[in-house]
Computed example of a mutant assay.
Amino acid sequence: MNRRLLSHLSISTLAALVFFATTPALAQKSIPPAKAPVSPMQMATKKLDDTTYVKVTYHSPRIQDPKTAQKRVIFGKLVPYGEVWRLGANSATELTTTGDLELAGKKLPAGTYSLFAIPQADKWTLIVNKDVGEWGAYKYNKDNDVLRVDVPATKSADTYEAFTIAFDEKGTALNFSWENTQVSVPVRPAKKG
């Protein structure tokens, strides 16, 4: 091949590459996002002091039944009174703390734990358990409880469609709200020494 033809081919090849690189491919297809989960994963976080950061990871179910779109009765029916509950949906709720905590006056060492509850109409027993990565409460083992605290359950004039876990603004309580029920667990960094 002569040099002039080779040069011409190189310029033509370069032009074609630039054209195809800057032109959207006609064969591309749009891929929709995955279907939104029925009980999406949520997090509640709070820095309580210089060494204590707390994160609660949970799945947030709704009052409305995802299959029938009907409102459900939550406490006493969907979530039975007197039975261990995963404190949300799907996998058990998990709490991680970088420093020692006091939950309702009881000391909890730094670490990652599963949270469960035993709801009653007037109080809940909050359970902190050392087993993590559990699906629901199906394999809950009471022997691995780190601590249990009883806290009052109150009725709210507001209705919480989504199960919600949140720290109050001051970081002095961890609150659980769903339907017309609210539970508040006092929380603070453990006293040093």
Results as ranks from 00 to 15, higher is better:
residue 31 I to Q: 13
residue 170 K to I: 00
residue 70 Q to V: 10
residue 136 G to N: 06
residue 101 L to Y: 04
residue 23 T to R: 13
residue 135 W to Q: 03
residue 108 L to A: 10
residue 109 P to H: 01
residue 19 F to A: 11
residue 137 A to Y: 14
residue 114 S to T: 02
residue 164 T to A: 10
residue 25 A to G: 15
residue 103 L to A: 12
residue 130 K to H: 06
residue 112 T to E: 09
residue 108 L to Q: 05
residue 64 Q to T: 08
residue 152 P to D: 09
residue 6 L to D: 03
residue 116 F to K: 03
residue 57 T to A: 15
residue 87 L to C: 14
residue 169 E to M: 03
residue 166 A to L: 14
residue 37 P to S: 09
residue 59 H to L: 05
residue 94 E to I: 07
residue 29 K to V: 15
residue 138 Y to M: 05
residue 153 A to H: 08
residue 170 K to R: 04
residue 155 K to I: 03
residue 43 M to W: 01
residue 162 A to N: 14
residue 159 T to Q: 14
residue 130 K to T: 09
residue 106 K to G: 14
residue 1 M to D: 09
residue 160 Y to G: 02
residue 144 N to C: 10
residue 66 P to S: 02
residue 150 D to I: 00
residue 86 R to T: 11
residue 46 K to C: 03
residue 137 A to D: 08
residue 142 K to N: 05
residue 119 P to F: 00
residue 123 K to G: 08
residue 114 S to K: 15
residue 107 K to I: 01
residue 123 K to V: 04
residue 146 V to W: 13
residue 98 T to R: 07
residue 178 W to E: 13
residue 85 W to D: 05
residue 1 M to C: 10
residue 127 I to S: 01
residue 62 R to V: 08
residue 145 D to C: 12
residue 126 L to N: 00
residue 186 P to M: 01
residue 139 K to T: 09
residue 33 P to G: 06
residue 119 P to E: 01
residue 115 L to V: 06
residue 21 A to V: 05
residue 88 G to L: 08
residue 23 T to S: 10
residue 61 P to G: 08
residue 151 V to T: 11
residue 86 R to V: 03
residue 106 K to L: 11
residue 132 V to I: 14
residue 4 R to V: 10
residue 180 N to M: 08
residue 170 K to V: 03
residue 171 G to L: 03
residue 87 L to E: 06
residue 83 E to Q: 11
residue 45 T to P: 00
residue 46 K to E: 01
residue 170 K to S: 14
residue 158 D to L: 09
residue 106 K to A: 11
residue 72 R to T: 02
residue 135 W to P: 00
residue 2 N to G: 12
residue 149 V to Q: 04
residue 46 K to R: 07
residue 5 L to S: 13
residue 179 E to C: 02
residue 184 S to D: 10
residue 117 A to I: 12
